[in-house]
Design a protein around this nucleic acid. Structure first.
Length: 141
DNA sequence: GCCAACGTTGGC
DNA sequence: GCCAACGTTGGC
């Protein structure tokens, strides 16, 4: 079981929109970056992730679950690009902001803090617990 | 809207 | 295989 963080601009695709997709979820398409793609290839069914709103909000608003292994991204003909399927699990009651995450010493190694441009990133188990705690999710899912 | 940081592309 | 030019991302 591994943990991840998915980044999206809410004006393009928000957590609300993912919730509307229901249990079936949707493919996390549009990723055109090898590191992000490789992270998705490493995902397993049942892995959990944070849903982070970039550009607007700048906060962790929801929990998602991987419900489909990496497969071709149907939004491109280029066979290099793949994506997993994800579905919304629950809201984060008190969404931790980027400022709060940056200010937390326990999270100083988070990819979100150190490589802000990577759109699909791994999250360490202790980082997962800490962000969940900040967000009011106790115990962490 | 700006711009720094980063990733990708393509000529050599 | 290098590196300059270009495009994109995302915080501010």
């Amino acid at each position: 079981m591994n943990y991840w963080l998915f980044k999206s601009e809410p004006s393009t695709f928000s957590f609300e929109m993912l919730k509307e997709k229901g249990k079936a979820g949707t493919q996390w398409d549009g990723v055109r970056n090898y590191q992000a793609r490789n992270n998705m290839r490493a995902m397993q069914i049942g892995d959990l992730g944070f849903f982070y709103h970039s550009n607007e909000g700048l906060d962790v608003v929801g929990i998602v679950e991987v419900c489909g292994l990496a497969h071709h991204d149907t939004t491109t003909d280029d066979p290099r690009w793949e994506c997993v399927d994800v579905r919304a699990v629950k809201d984060v009651p008190n969404p931790p902001t980027l400022d709060e995450i940056k200010a937390n010493e326990k999270l100083s190694k988070m990819v979100l803090v150190n490589n802000s441009r990577l759109s699909v990133q791994p999250v360490a188990p202790d980082e997962w617990k800490e962000v969940c705690r900040m967000g009011g999710l106790v115990p962490a899912p």
